[in-house]
Structures are given as C-alpha cells and as structure tokens.
Design a protein around this nucleic acid. Structure first.
Lengths: 290, 290
DNA sequence: AAATTCATGCAACAAATGTTTCATGGTCGA
DNA sequence: TCGACCATGAAACATTTGTTGCATGAATTT
C-alpha cells in the first residue's frame, strides 16, 4: 500500500515558490531555510530578521492555501514534531504465521534498534560521566529486566574503580543501602515503563540524601527521572517485539563506562591493568594459543 | 550545597521538581513530558490541556530561576534547536583532547554499534529459537560481562516459561548444574574474547550430555562454539572504546526471546499474561496515572 | 487558638501577536 | 499615455498572550 504522498507544508511551499511575487519569494525562502525558527518565534520577530514586512508572512501563507500564518505555522509545527513512537507499530500489524515471518521479525527488530542508537544524545552521557568521575562512591540500581544493565555497568565500572562502585541490594535488602547514600556520591537508576516501585524509591532516596542522581530511562517524565541531575534517554519501545528493547540502555551504559574510564586517565588505566593481571593469574581466561 | 548541573533547562526543571509545591510539580511534569509542545504552543493552551491555571506556568518558570515563562520557553527552544544537536556534532572535528572529544567518542561508538546490528544474521537466531521452543528445559550461562546478557535472557524467557529456564550457577556451584543437564534440554552459553574457563566447561558439559548447545559469541572459532548446534555471532570489537561491545549480544538475546515467545503461541501468551498479572497484583510497578 | 505564611484560582492588565485596511508606487496592456 | 491591476510597506485593528494583583483557603507556627 502506497501513501498518497501527502506533501509536507515545506514542500508545498517550495513548489509554489517560483510563481510567487518577488517579496513573497524572499520570505518563503527565509521560512524554508529557517523552519525551526518559523515554528518557535513570532511572525514579527521573523520579519525583523528577514528584513521584511510582517504582513508578507500572512500573505505568503494565504498564497499557498492556508487561512493565515497561524495555520501555516501549525502545519510546520506538526511536521516537525518528533516522531511519536507507537508501541503497536510492529506487533499489532497482522503478521501471518509462516517460515519467513520470524526472520522478518528479527530483521525488523535489529534494524529498528540500530536506528534508535544514533538518536541517543551524546552530550548528557558525557556530562553524567563527569559526575561519575567526581563521585566518591557510585551506587547502581536496576530491577527486573533492567537488572542486567545495572549489573553490566557495575561490572565495567568495577574494573577500574573496584572499591567505589556498588550495586544496590547486593548486601542485604535495598533499604540498607538507601540509608548509606551520602552527598558527594552518585546514584545511577535504570528503568523504563512499567516503572518499579523499588527504582523510584532508590531515586528518591538519592535525591533526598543530596547525592548526584543519574537516571537511565525511556522517558524524561519517568518517575525516577524526577530530581535527577542527569537523564539519559533511550528508546525502549522503538523496536517490534514483545519486550521493551534494552540495547539502547546497554549502549548508554557502555558509553558511560567508557567515558568515565577515559576521564580517569592514567590512574584508571593502571587499575584496569591490575585487575586484568589478577584475573589472568587466577587463570580465569582461556589462554590464547597460536 | 552542590551546584546543580545546569546543562539544559529541562534538567534544571527536573532537579527542582521535588522541592516544588504540588501544583507546580504537576505543571512541571507536564512541561517535562511535553517539552515540544511547550516550545510551540501558547501558555494558555498548555494550561488548558494540563488542566491547570495559566498562572502556574509563570510561577513555575520563576520558581526555577527564570524571569518568566517567556524566558523558560526561550531556553527550551534553544535547547531543542536541531542545528547544534544533530549534524556533525562531534566526528567531523579534530580529535584533540578536550570537552568535545568525549562527545565524539560517544557518537562514534553509538554509530559503530548501530552499524553492527543489521549485520547480525537473522536465520540462525530463528533456528536457535526453534530449538529453544522444543527444549524441555533451558540452561543459560554467561560470565563476567556476559553475565548481564545471560541474566537478561533468563529474565525474559522466564516470563513465559517460568519452570523451564534456569541460570547456571544460581543454586550452588556451577558444577552442580552441569551434572543435571539432560538430553532434550538446551544450553545457551554466552561469551567472547577473552573466554572464561567456566563458559567453556559449561559448553563441554552440554555437548557431552547430549543437550542442544547454543553459543552466542563474537567468533565462530570460540572454544565454547565447538560442538555447538547453533552459533549466533555478533561483533564485540566493532565499536571504539575500551570494553567489547555487548549491544550485539543483547540484541541477539532479545530477538531470541521474542521469536521463542512467538513460537510459543497462545500458551506462551497466556503464561506471560499470568506473570504480568501477578506482578501487578504485587504492586511491583508504579501505576500509570492519567 | 490566633496569627502567619503560603499555595492557588480568578480576573484584570499591559504588551505582543496576527490580521486587515489603506495609500503608494510600479508594471503591463490597450 | 492612460487606466487597470497588483505588489508592497506602514499603520490601525481586534485578539491573544504572558503577567500581576487580589481574595480565598489550607497548612504551619506562635
């Protein structure tokens, strides 16, 4: 099934552009080139920057079939709206049983997850890593499926900061750890919908105790992101399948560990070497043979 | 007093959220959850949708240090501006040490991992899932950083096959489990270079006992892949960084679980529903509120 | 118990927004 | 050349916007 190619307001604009009066062309080009400002700033503001009359914007909108600038801007705004991920994109679709349908499921899933990774904002990860670098102690909490991510992070960070990293709930009930959180420490909470009470409690405890709170979540409005100093977002529902995807969370966790290690400099490197030497001495690993 | 990370207005908002009056919290949550609308639509419009007083938005802005809603919105708008976020954020520039090099590291890492995912062969995953579907019992083994992947797989499979899935080494020493493996069962071993002795021993025990062996590894010549009925390969070293990447392994694990579930049909679906109902009854999750 | 602070909704306010009108100047066809 | 038409900028318009003062009621302190 092919969509009737409903053109976006921007392409409508560009198509109509050549047949417009000179001044409207200028304004139209300005809008096309600055469509983000067009959706966010006021008409008069744009007019000032474009060196044009405010009325030209109203006339432009009417010239390409809108009732006025407001309507054009609303269309541009909707066109720019970040793609709302529909949870039922892949699963609700009729997927008839067959030998190839499962392969298609896997392929779709992998591709969707691959597409989600580059959309992860890098800057917040770096900032969170700085916070980890400065933290005197690092707590990590994650429950149910997120537990695996928490443990991964715990493992990697411990490779070069063995004494300062701890998984919440390993040495007794969680509550025991919650009371031990102090200012100057950092707490990482991982979770996504549906959110567990436990993860929210850890986040609140972290915030209350004055520690730096880092939330890895699928949504900026997740309850454990409240009060968080750093929120690292990934797309959990972006891939077809039955469980939320964890690849984004894992990628974030690994990037976080990598940058934190990088900030650690020579000291971190040395500790990592020590740890590796110890593991090798215990003959944990199969020796590579030539 | 610790200075808060003033990276983005959204994080400022989240940090201040818990210490705000109730109504302002509601409004703040709404803004955090709908930040795109916050930048594009009018204050009164938002107020109507949030079911709040317009004045609350002005007060919220002032409460977190802005002169008014206009200024907060301007900050949100600038934070969302696409030009500085998406294109050429880090990679095109020189790689000299500095605040940007870390961002480039993360960006490159994410892109490399994203590129690796579609290269994962789907067919072997489906075949392995069929084996899992037929298995009377499923054992899962993974050590060190792979432990997290093993636990993820264990968790997801247990959601719809609670009695038949078990992580190796949870109920005593590994060796105890190794003797319990029987023909008709399936064993999943996850590992990559450097390979642990433990994972190799599990693989060998599985092979010896006549169980179906599924290896998730970075290389087809990995020692635990020897004698394996199914080998699922991913690229662990494909991404820059200091630790091998686990996103590929996680993606494989989740796909494996998804296909196995799909093969399980109505029975699996029913068990999953039962599990979810039990979790909900235990109020594990934070209830969604409208 | 009284006093005080504070949160909150309502309504009025000034400023701004988008639109329209009007006058001007230019272009094209007869 | 004249007249009809249109593009264009400036100003006036009604509407909407964000803000603020005020009254009310709840929570907290004295």
């Amino acid at each position: 099934m092919v969509e009737p190619a409903k053109s976006s307001p921007l392409s409508e604009l560009r198509i109509a552009l050549p047949s417009l009066p000179m001044r409207l062309q200028e304004v139209g080009r300005f809008v096309a080139a600055n469509d983000y400002d067009a959706t966010t700033r006021s008409m008069r503001d744009l007019a000032a920057e474009a060196g044009a009359d405010p009325a030209a914007f109203t006339r432009l909108a009417k010239a390409i079939g809108y009732s006025g600038w407001d309507e054009l801007r609303a269309a541009l705004t909707e066109a720019r709206r970040p793609s709302q991920i529909s949870p039922f994109s892949g699963r609700a679709r009729g997927r008839r049983p067959g030998p190839n349908s499962d392969v298609a499921l896997v392929t779709d899933k992998l591709e969707a997850e691959a597409a989600g990774l580059p959309r992860i904002p890098a800057q917040p990860i770096v900032e969170a890593a700085r916070a980890l670098h400065q933290a005197k102690r690092i707590w990590i909490a994650g429950y149910r499926s997120c537990r695996s991510v928490a443990e991964l992070l715990n493992y990697e960070l411990r490779l070069f900061r063995p004494e300062q990293v701890q998984l919440v709930g390993t040495s007794g009930p969680d509550d025991l750890d919650l009371g031990a959180i102090r200012p100057g420490e950092a707490v990482i909470v991982i979770g996504f919908l549906p959110y567990t009470h436990a993860s929210v409690r850890v986040a609140q405890a972290a915030h209350r105790s004055g520690a730096t709170l880092i939330a890895i979540a699928d949504n900026s409005s997740a309850p454990m992101a409240e009060g968080a100093d750093h929120v690292l977002l990934f797309e959990a529902a972006s891939s077809p399948g039955f469980f939320p995807s964890l690849t984004g969370a894992v990628a974030i966790a690994q990037s976080l560990a990598a940058v934190t290690f990088s900030l650690g400099g020579a000291a971190a490197k040395k500790r990592l070497e020590n740890t590796e030497a110890r593991l090798a001495a215990a003959s944990t690993y199969v020796s590579e043979k030539g």
